[in-house]
Design a protein around this nucleic acid. Sequence first.
RNA 1: GCACCCAUAGCUCAGCUGGAUAGAGUGUCGCCCUCCGAAGGCGAAGGUCGAAGGUUCGAAUCCUUCUGGGUGCACCA
Length: 581
Amino acid sequence: MNLFAEIRTLVIDSLTALQSEGVLPEGLDFANVAVEPPRDAAHGDMATNAAMVLAKPAKMKPRDIAEALVAKLTADDRITVAEVAGPGFLNLRLKADVWHGVITAALTKGAEFGMSNMGMGTRVNVEYVSANPTGPLHVGHTRGAVFGDALASLLAYANYDVTREYYINDAGAQVDVLARSVYLRYLEANGQEVAFVDGTYPGDYLIPVGQALAGAYGDKLVGKPESVWLEDIREYATDAMMHLIREDLASLGVEMDVFYSEKSLYGTGQIEGALKALENKGLIYEGVLEPPKGKKPDDWEPREQTLFKSSDHGDDVDRPVKKSDGSWTYFAPDIAYHYTKVEREFDELIDVFGADHGGYVKRMKAAVSALSDGEVPLDIKLTQLVKLFKNGEPFKMSKRAGTFIMLRDLVEQVGPDVTRFVMLTRKNDAPLDFDFDKVLEQSKDNPVFYVQYANARICSILRKANEAGIDVSDATLLDAELSGLTHEAEINLVQKLAEWPRLVEVAARTHEPHRVAFYLYELAGEFHALWNKGNDVVDLRFFQEDNIAATQSKTALIRAVAVVISAGLGILGVTPVEEMR
RNA sequence: GCACCCAUAGCUCAGCUGGAUAGAGUGUCGCCCUCCGAAGGCGAAGGUCGAAGGUUCGAAUCCUUCUGGGUGCACCA
């Protein structure tokens, strides 16, 4: 139930009626007519811009349209007052029981209150993490993982048919490096002294892989040339790394639907097929790129390469798909991979990349645009850096000194819930400060705590009422008499609840799950404000020992709040707590 | 040199396909704890929304230019 959408429908219906009465001209576009919460509550419960938006196309004065609309709207029994204000705003006040209906709807629908049909089953592929299978996930990956996962859940909540996908880069040179590094660990496990030169991965996490390999092969591979073992070890090592990565993801509560292997594209004609598709559109040619201006690499020399004419689809320059020696560039399999997404009949694609891949956005969009003839939109969300702090001091990370922070370090120290929520307290394209101490702090400036605390307080009251023998089961609260909820602070809270379905749609449309986190913080704020008013105004306390009916109506309200908090935290992948410990 | 992202209160940040007097936390100042959980509460002060133009009835939001910060820039993944 989206109250704003319902009132908007009423406004549109009224406008249509005015057209048939000849008050308004035909052929008006109502798409921009909005019904929103007013910025200032003193203006009313809802506001619509209809008169201002339509003034120009209807060639009428905004106030004249507004006046005509007022007469229509006040005839509806949900509206108590409709008045024209300012340049042509129409401020509406709703009957109290309309607001109370929000509580009933939340209690009836539970977690489904707020779900939207906006997606209408659109098939959307959300690709995220996609870290190279060369080691465990670190902090940067964590943000991408949390963001992508929350975005996927958000879209699912708005009735998109979501596929969560991880692209495994298991075919490039980096997995050869991995294999060589593991081979060194293997030699080590066979009692040899080894040196980790530049260009190998020295991480400890490869030690058990080398040992396992020694267990499986004994010393059969010792002293053998690379050609003998590279392929086997590469596969063995990438499997081991993907196992690590899956464990990391699981510890965060991230579950992928599809792990798509880059290697599986090779030898099957899929890369050739994707490039053929581009070639058929006349977008592949042999050519020589201009050197980059201003920053010319020292070893630059003109080379003829196979190029994709990405500049035809919004890119700045054309991009090579083959190296000068004829082998694929990394871009080629990526094109093929995205081609499979188009062929798998997704209606929309979303890629979540780290900000350091920003330079990759245009060419990828160009490729998808070309391959789908502009039919399949690709949105690429970049997640900015996470800056770590401890005791207010920047936490310097160094691979060499072993202070590189991994996903598992975060989860071990602060838990998956805090990790996830904090990662979503900033827009994806803004850098994020993550302070190990602050995120565990129990105070109002810690949003995780503040939201969880609200939920815990609500649970506490429900327990208390139960202990006092008052029935506060959802079934009973559904029938509770709500007409007593008239105090401004109570209505404020209800109105905040009413915004939830609307917020879900805004967040889903903009692909911005952080809006959910901010909304929950605001909702918790309204709840705490009402609680605190109970300190002074006894009638506002949720638990009224000598008044069962009042207790039930007030617990119905806060139970609805808990329902929305749980639903919102569910989207973020955070478990609501019932008690603060 | 080019591209992308960012610039909002002292600080950290929200700001809804453009909407009314631009919001929150924190910090500062004043008052408040016999009270369902004070791990706080109420109030005040605090802004040329980086700058200048433009579009619009209306711009923090859209366009152009500029300034300042971040990131990336043939063949590496």
